[in-house]
């Protein structure tokens, strides 16, 4: 068990170091996400009642796009630099490779979110930096990343990787993104109360289900 976790961490740590070397991905994702935030914010009409809904929607739209770019980029780097065979030849279980990728993708996204949330907190004038919103974001991000990592592993192996990933990824994460939007706007609403714990529980269950299924299916995705 300990070696398994070490292997998972070795793989994620390698991805993080690679990214630290160039920081290309973090910067480009941030530029795109902030641009997206400006566009959506200007396009959506302002009304006091809808602030929470608007904020939640815009934020999750941004996170969805960011996670799509992160999971894709991470696998393309792996594929282009050494090819997937480079990891397959190692004495590491396939699901450890998958979990390693999930962890590095998750860390990338958490970094992006830690910039995105204070920023939108200011831009939308909504208190986003609360424990409940953080918990919701963490739980939902795990599920989104878990699904994205599996689909990215498949997509890089097809003829049209840049088309295949969004086609598979976006419809697949609709349930969890909808649940996250719903939970976020509830969390922002002070009158919603303690029922928010239920929402977080649903998100955690969804994420857990996705990550478990995907880890099993990943064994078949890279089976050459």
């Amino acid at each position: 068990m300990k070696t398994y976790l070490t292997q998972v961490w070795d793989i994620s740590y390698k991805d993080i170091r690679l990214e630290m070397r160039t920081r290309q991905m973090a910067v480009s994702v941030l530029v795109i996400v902030i641009a997206l935030m400006i566009v959506t914010n200007l396009a959506i009409p302002k009304s006091v009642d809808a602030t929470f809904t608007t904020t939640a929607t815009v934020i999750w739209l941004c996170i969805l796009i960011a996670s799509f770019m992160v999971v894709m980029r991470n696998f393309v780097i792996e594929y282009d630099q050494i090819g997937f065979h480079g990891l397959i030849m190692c004495p590491v279980p396939r699901d450890a490779i998958y979990l390693g990728k999930v962890v590095s993708n998750l860390i990338f996204l958490l970094v992006i979110e830690s910039i995105l949330f204070p920023l939108s907190s200011i831009l939308f004038d909504v208190p986003l930096l609360t424990p409940t919103v953080t918990a919701i974001t963490g739980m939902a991000t795990i599920g989104i990343v878990a699904a994205g990592t599996l689909f990215a592993a498949i997509s890089v192996n097809t003829k049209a990787r840049e088309i295949m990933l969004p086609v598979l990824f976006f419809p697949a994460v609709i349930p969890i993104v909808l649940a996250a939007v719903d939970a976020t706007q509830n969390a922002l609403n002070p009158s919603y109360g303690a029922k928010i714990l239920e929402d977080i529980g649903v998100l955690a269950a969804l994420s857990l289900a996705i990550i478990a299924t995907s880890a099993i299916l990943f064994n078949f995705a890279v089976d050459e």
Binding site: I154, T158, A160, L168, I174, F220
Partner: peptide, 29 residues
């Protein structure tokens, strides 16, 4: 999405594997 992954994958057994994965996750979804 399922039909697209089939048409974008060339090798028959890879196509079957990928679409099975997409099929399983799609039906859970």
């Amino acid at each position: 999405g399922y039909l697209l992954i089939r048409s974008y994958t060339v090798e028959p057994d890879k196509r079957a594997r990928f679409s099975a994965i997409v099929g399983i996750l799609g039906s859970i979804n």
